[in-house]
Amino acid sequence: MADMRVNIAGVEFKNPVITASGTFGYGREYEHFFPLSKLGGISTKGTTAEKRNGNLAPRIAETPSGILNSVGLQNPGIDKFIKVELPNLKSKGTVIIANIAGFSVDEYVKICEKLDATNVDMIEINISCPNVKHGGAAFGTSCQSAAEVTKAVRAATKKPIIIKLSPNVTDITEIAKAVEAEGADAVSLINTLLGMRIDINSRRPILKNNVGGLSGAAVFPVALRMVWQTANAVKIPVIGMGGISTWEDGIEMMLAGASAIQVGAALFKNPFAAVEIIDGMNAYLDRKGIKSVNEIVKKVQPW
């Protein structure tokens, strides 16, 4: 058995596999399949200051090897998260990352101040949700606003901060560098790619929101490329995600430069995807005689 432990911004994970925000709720549903303690960590459903219903259905459409979603940050609000969900999650023996989103810099700050007083392990700042009209992605698509949010949340909490980046930008490395300069402890990428599908009979978009975020295996090569570029541009750890469906994808993502990985859409078809990826990666390391998973990070040998 290889040593699967990784350390991100001083937080130790028993393995590098984290379930991705928005696909795993607050953990209660998948716990019927496997103990949550098997996971390296859980990034919780994106939570806002107030409760939200999100967008109208349909909020999902299937695409070739992918999924478009337009949930729009449905969540019970940060107070209920802290009171009800966090204590439950913290009893599960895995790293808990609170994923949060805001519609103004003040809202991000307010949520971080509240989380600062809890025992949550890390905060993942979602500046890249493509499914809300104001805020969300708007913060993640310019260096200036991304830096502004990072600076503000940095001042609001001592918890390690991960900034979750949008791929819907010209150069993701510039955004990564901007948030690193303002004190982000890590970056995670990629959030979903903006996409669309149309019903050719009704001539209506399938999603009621017209457009939505693309995830799943279809986006994996794009995610891998962006993680590789970002890992070569910043010194802080990069958490890689986007279409990871198998242990081979996990290994690739870490070779590209990810210090840890997140698994999301793959869970919908195979609820055991994350735990199978952990086991598969471990077996790969053993076969290769590699003692620690950290030894493969950024070890791709580019031509």
Binding site: R28, E29, A57, R59, I60, A61, V71
Partner: peptide, 15 residues
Amino acid sequence: ERMGCGIGACLVCAC
């Protein structure tokens, strides 16, 4: 409704 996870985690099948 169009569903994702089918178990209540992904929240897509809103009613």
